[in-house]
């Protein structure tokens, strides 16, 4: 029953950085969630983020295309090339 709490290490690892809000961390946290992707052109795509890469290339599921707040198209799956992306916004609290 000993060893309930391990003894403190002589050389404890350096403290984690206080901010973990980097773009990479955001993207890790947002995969699988509902997002709003706005293109530079102003068109919005709302859907479930299935995956993305460092270029901000994006694959969305259950996608709705919004132009001026009006749904203009629905796609089961959509690929968005990253150069067009203005922002990726979480549509729900993370």
């Amino acid at each position: 029953m000993e060893d309930e709490t391990p003894p403190p290490e002589e050389h404890s690892p350096p403290p984690q950085p206080t901010h973990t809000g980097s773009p990479t961390d955001f993207l890790k946290g947002v995969v699988g969630k509902r997002v709003i992707v706005r293109l530079v052109s102003g068109v919005d795509y709302r859907g479930v983020l299935s995956c993305l890469d460092g270029y901000m290339n994006i694959a969305l599921e259950q996608t709705e295309e919004h132009v001026n707040g009006v749904v203009t198209n629905r796609y089961g799956d959509a690929f968005i090339r990253g150069n067009n992306v203005l922002y990726i916004s979480a549509a729900e609290k993370l």
Binding site: P23, F26, L27, V30, I36, V40, G42, M56, N83, V85, L86, Y87, I88, S89, A90, A91, E92, K93, L94
Partner: peptide, 22 residues
């Protein structure tokens, strides 16, 4: 904020990754 000839529109967003390109 988006500034248009008709005036300025505001939109609230949750946590957002903004592309640095623009």
């Amino acid at each position: 904020y988006e500034t248009t000839p008709q005036g300025r529109t505001k939109k609230s967003l949750e946590q957002t990754l903004l592309n640095g390109n623009n």
